[in-house]
Simulated assay, not measured.
Amino acid sequence: MPLSCHSSLIRYACRLRGKTGHVDTAHPLDLEELNRRLRHKISHNLTALVIGLDAHLAALDLDPLDPETPQHIEAVVEVDEKGMSFRYASQLPTAPQRSDGGHPQIRLDFPSLRQTFATRYETLTGLFTVLELREDAFDF
């Protein structure tokens, strides 16, 4: 679930809202202001990206993200609050030592994790098609 996918969807939805005449004081529709907000305020905050995307989808009378997408994103946030660990290897948190001095064992089901990320990514990229269809309908 790359951040760029969330940010790009927000930018696209924002542009589409502006094109259709929406006005919103809570979520700026000016692309320069939005880019500044994404870069400096929201940054790598996955939760804020999901909330922002859902707000734009609702304003366009589109369904919000399916409930599993925010749940999976929250699971990532629990492990990586700053949104940097999965993005940059040097940002991985240091695991606490075991009482005997050894390294803790962390068990991950990588095939399941990979499938979850692939499904969430497909959901998010599918939204581009939904937004394109909405834009095409508006153009006619």
Score class of each variant (00 low, 15 high):
E135R: 07
Y121V: 10
V77I: 07
P64H: 05
R120S: 06
L53R: 03
A59N: 07
T123V: 10
T94D: 15
P67T: 10
L65F: 07
Q91Y: 07
L31I: 10
D54Y: 04
P64N: 07
Y88N: 12
L38I: 00
L108R: 15
M1N: 01
G102N: 15
L49N: 10
D54Q: 08
E135W: 00
G83I: 04
S4E: 08
L31P: 07
G101K: 05
F86R: 10
H72N: 13
Q91H: 14
L124C: 05
D139Y: 11
P111Y: 02
R11V: 01
L124G: 01
I73F: 08
Q71K: 14
M84P: 03
T119Y: 07
G21Q: 02
T123D: 06
R107I: 14
H103I: 03
T125R: 04
R98S: 14
Y121F: 10
E74A: 13
H103P: 06
M84V: 03
L31M: 09
H27N: 09
L49Y: 05
L46Y: 05
T20P: 05
Y12R: 10
E132C: 08
E78F: 12
Q105A: 13
S85Q: 14
I10D: 01
T25I: 11
A118G: 09
G83N: 04
D24Y: 14
Y88C: 06
L9H: 01
R39E: 03
F117T: 04
Q71C: 09
L124H: 03
T94H: 15
R98Y: 09
L49F: 03
I106V: 13
L65S: 07
S112Q: 15
R98W: 09
P70N: 07
H6P: 13
L9I: 03
L124F: 00
R98T: 06
E78C: 15
D24R: 14
L34F: 04
G102I: 05
I106A: 11
G101T: 05
R120P: 00
F117R: 11
S4L: 05
H44T: 02
K19L: 02
E68D: 09
I51Q: 10
K19I: 02
E33M: 13
L113W: 10
R39M: 04
R134L: 06
P96H: 08
R107S: 12
T25H: 13
A75F: 12
S43F: 05
A89I: 03
P28V: 02
V77S: 04
L131D: 05
V23R: 09
R37S: 12
A75Y: 06
Q97N: 14
Q105F: 14
H72Q: 14
E78A: 14
A26E: 15
D63A: 15
Y12P: 01
Q115K: 13
S90I: 12
I106S: 15
R107E: 13
S8A: 10
